[in-house]
Amino acid sequence: MADKTFRLEVVSPDSELYSGDATFLVAQTTVGELGILASHAPMLAELAPGGCVVVTESGGNRTAFAVQGGFLSVTGESVTVLAEHAQFASDIDVAAERSVLESADEGSAEFLRAKSRVRAAEAVG
C-alpha cells in the first residue's frame, strides 16, 4: 500500500527552496516538535528559533532544512513552510557551524542560526 502524500512548499522571501510531495514532516515550533502526515487538521504554527524542518519525500528520501523564523501552515491537502531564512542541510558546513556554537553567546541570533544549521545537518546525516 502506498503512503498518502501531501503537497509541500518550503519558501523564504527570496526563493522557493522545495516543492514536491511528502509523506511526513517534522518541524520544531514554539509549542514543541510537530509531526505532520497527509490529511492533518488545518493549523498554523510559529517555527522555533534555531529549529529545522525534516521531510520524508514520497519516494522515501529524507531531506532537511535549517529554518530561522517564520511559520508552518497546514491545510487538509498541503503544507507550506514560510521561513524568514532557510537553507538545505546538504549545503551546510557542519564543522564551521559547530565552531560558531562554541564561540557565540547562547541565545544570540548568530548562535540560533548555527544551532538550526547543525540540527538540520544532523537530522539527515
Results as ranks from 00 to 15, higher is better:
residue 8 L to E: 00
residue 69 G to P: 05
residue 25 L to N: 05
residue 76 G to D: 10
residue 58 S to P: 08
residue 61 N to W: 09
residue 4 K to S: 14
residue 98 R to C: 14
residue 41 A to G: 10
residue 83 A to F: 07
residue 83 A to P: 05
residue 55 V to S: 11
residue 15 S to P: 01
residue 52 C to H: 15
residue 35 G to W: 03
residue 75 T to Y: 03
residue 101 L to P: 02
residue 92 I to W: 03
residue 43 M to H: 05
residue 22 A to D: 00
residue 121 A to G: 03
residue 121 A to Y: 03
residue 123 A to R: 11
residue 33 E to L: 05
residue 1 M to V: 10
residue 78 S to H: 06
residue 122 E to S: 10
residue 16 E to K: 12
residue 99 S to M: 09
residue 29 T to Q: 02
residue 12 S to M: 09
residue 110 E to I: 10
residue 11 V to Q: 03
residue 20 G to W: 06
residue 89 A to V: 10
residue 89 A to F: 01
residue 20 G to E: 07
residue 2 A to D: 11
residue 102 E to Y: 04
residue 63 T to R: 15
residue 17 L to C: 07
residue 40 H to L: 02
residue 102 E to M: 11
residue 90 S to N: 12
residue 6 F to R: 04
residue 75 T to A: 08
residue 86 A to T: 07
residue 96 A to G: 13
residue 19 S to G: 08
residue 54 V to Y: 02
residue 90 S to L: 08
residue 80 T to P: 08
residue 32 G to F: 07
residue 79 V to H: 00
residue 4 K to N: 13
residue 13 P to I: 06
residue 109 A to G: 06
residue 122 E to T: 09
residue 52 C to F: 12
residue 101 L to S: 02
residue 43 M to G: 12
residue 45 A to D: 04
residue 125 G to N: 12
residue 120 A to Q: 02
residue 112 L to P: 04
residue 20 G to L: 02
residue 1 M to L: 09
residue 95 A to I: 14
residue 23 T to G: 01
residue 83 A to Q: 04
residue 118 V to I: 10
residue 13 P to F: 03
residue 31 V to I: 11
residue 110 E to D: 10
residue 121 A to H: 06
residue 47 L to E: 00
residue 70 G to K: 13
residue 96 A to P: 03
residue 4 K to Q: 14
residue 69 G to I: 01
residue 48 A to W: 03
residue 65 F to C: 09
residue 19 S to A: 13
residue 38 A to T: 05
residue 116 S to T: 08
residue 97 E to P: 03
residue 121 A to K: 13
residue 89 A to C: 05
residue 37 L to C: 04
residue 5 T to S: 14
residue 66 A to W: 02
residue 25 L to A: 04
residue 94 V to Q: 12
residue 34 L to D: 07
residue 114 A to F: 07
residue 94 V to H: 04
residue 25 L to P: 02
